[in-house]
Simulated scan of single mutants.
Amino acid sequence: MQGILLVNLGSPKSPTAKDVKPYLDEFLMDERVIDVPYLLRAFLVRGIILNTRPKKSAEAYKKIWWPEGSPLIVISERQQKKVQELIDIPVALAMRYGEPSIKTGIEELKAKGVSDILMIPLYPQFAMATTETIDVLAKNLIKKHFPEIKLTSLPAFYNKPEYIEALAESIKSHLEGFDYDHLLFSYHGVPERHIKKSDITKSHCQINNKCCVTNSKAHEFCYRHQCLETTRQVVEKLNIPEGKYSSSFQSKLGPDKWLQPPTDDTVNEFPTQGIKKLAVVTPAFVADCIETLEEIGLEAHHEFINHGGEEFRTIPCLNDDDLWINALVTWIKEWKNN
């Protein structure tokens, strides 16, 4: 019997430092998130970061927490429910960090008689710290606990026409009536070394303006290329003219060199360039979360106005938008019928 496992990032159980701390520990101790040797990672995370960050992060979570719980979890549950209503095989939900765990999700499907799983990491673009860490953990769990189960993982869908259509239509609908000066595509940032580590050719990625637009098999696992290609296809579909849009990368952590340009600096500089009405979309996420609701919707908004901006519009993630749900169902049916 076939089944579907939707997997997203995860969330603390509550917006308190007590619950944020173990969540951050699991997240930041992942060797594909902070990819340094274990002892150094433990020193950075448990010796430094976890002594200060949980309290600060908890305050941020409190600002965006919903009465029903974590926005990311609530939205993911809505996605699961809508997908389940449209297909006749079991659909389970899991998180890479926190609960429900990937192991729990697989156990739920197994209990329903599932022996063939399509796992869908809910990230449009491939990255070490998102898609890859989900794939690696799930494969290890299958090998150790569920050897009788066949697991297939849906590849990055950043350029699938159904995704581009859903994203473009969502942006179009949320820009209606807003005479914006600029549309910023803000993607979650990663250290530049992650891009080079993911280069299967070991030579193509130079992280410049040429390699990401030069055809290469490296693009299958190049986060930067996939982000820029998402932007390119969406603006082409919406006929947004050159100069009225750009891409940036948010959520930098630590002193390493991360993908450029940074969203915070970019947003703050826009008013000096005559950009007074700004719209921001976050296509690295398919469910609103702390990075979209707090970091963009509150912090970036505040900073833009403080630096001379006049109007700021945050475009929601796809969430449980019907076109997005239909895209998921289309891919599931393609897998199911093959």
Results as ranks from 00 to 15, higher is better:
Gly308Val: 11
Asp264Lys: 15
Lys276Met: 12
Thr272Asn: 14
Ser246Val: 02
His307Val: 01
Glu295Gln: 09
Glu236Leu: 11
Leu298Ile: 15
Leu278His: 06
Pro283Leu: 06
Phe270Asn: 04
Asp264Met: 14
Lys252Phe: 09
Ala287Phe: 10
Gly274Cys: 06
Gly243Ile: 05
Phe270Pro: 07
Leu259Arg: 00
Val280Ala: 03
Ser246Asp: 08
Phe249Tyr: 11
Gly254Arg: 01
Gly254Cys: 14
His301Ile: 00
Lys276His: 05
Asp288His: 11
Glu294His: 14
Val280Asn: 08
Lys252Ile: 11
Val267Cys: 00
Leu238Ala: 09
Pro283Phe: 12
Asn306Val: 05
Ser248Ile: 01
Glu242Trp: 05
Pro261Phe: 00
Ser248Gly: 10
Asp265Leu: 12
Thr292Lys: 07
Pro241Val: 06
Ile296Pro: 01
Leu293Ser: 07
Thr263Phe: 00
Glu299Pro: 05
Pro255Asp: 15
Ala300Met: 07
Thr292Asn: 10
Ala279Asp: 14
Asp288Gln: 08
Glu229Ile: 07
Asp265Val: 13
Ser251Thr: 05
His302Thr: 15
Lys276Pro: 06
Ile305Asp: 07
Lys237Ala: 15
Asp288Pro: 06
Pro283Gln: 12
Thr292Arg: 01
Phe285Glu: 08
Asp264Val: 15
Leu298Gly: 01
Gly254His: 04
Gln233Gly: 04
Glu242Val: 06
Pro262Arg: 08
Glu303Met: 13
Val234Cys: 10
Ala279Asn: 15
Glu295Ser: 08
Val286Pro: 07
Glu294Asn: 12
Gly274Gln: 09
Leu298Arg: 10
Thr266Glu: 03
Tyr245Asp: 00
Leu278Tyr: 05
Asn268His: 14
Glu229Ala: 12
Glu229Arg: 00
Lys276Thr: 12
Glu229Asp: 14
Phe304Ile: 03
Leu278Pro: 05
Trp258Glu: 06
Asn239Ile: 09
Lys257His: 07
Gly297Thr: 00
Gln260Arg: 11
Val286Glu: 04
Gly243Pro: 10
Ile240Ala: 03
Glu303Ser: 13
Gln260Val: 13
Tyr245Asn: 04
Ala279Glu: 09
Ser248Val: 08
Val234Ala: 09
Asn239Trp: 11
Val281Met: 09
Glu242Asn: 10
Pro261Val: 00
Ala300Phe: 00
Gly254Pro: 13
Tyr245Cys: 01
Pro241Leu: 06
Leu253His: 02
Gln260Ile: 11
Leu278Gln: 03
Gln233Arg: 14
Glu269Asp: 14
Glu299Lys: 14
Asp264Asn: 13
Glu299Ala: 10
Glu299Ser: 13
Asn306Met: 08
Glu242Tyr: 09
Val234Trp: 08
Asp265Ile: 10
Lys276Tyr: 08
Asn306Cys: 11
Gly309Pro: 14
Gly308Ile: 04
Gly254Val: 15
Val267Ile: 12
Ile290Tyr: 09
Val280Gln: 02
Pro271Met: 07
Ile290His: 07
His307Ala: 08
Ala284Asn: 02
Phe285His: 03
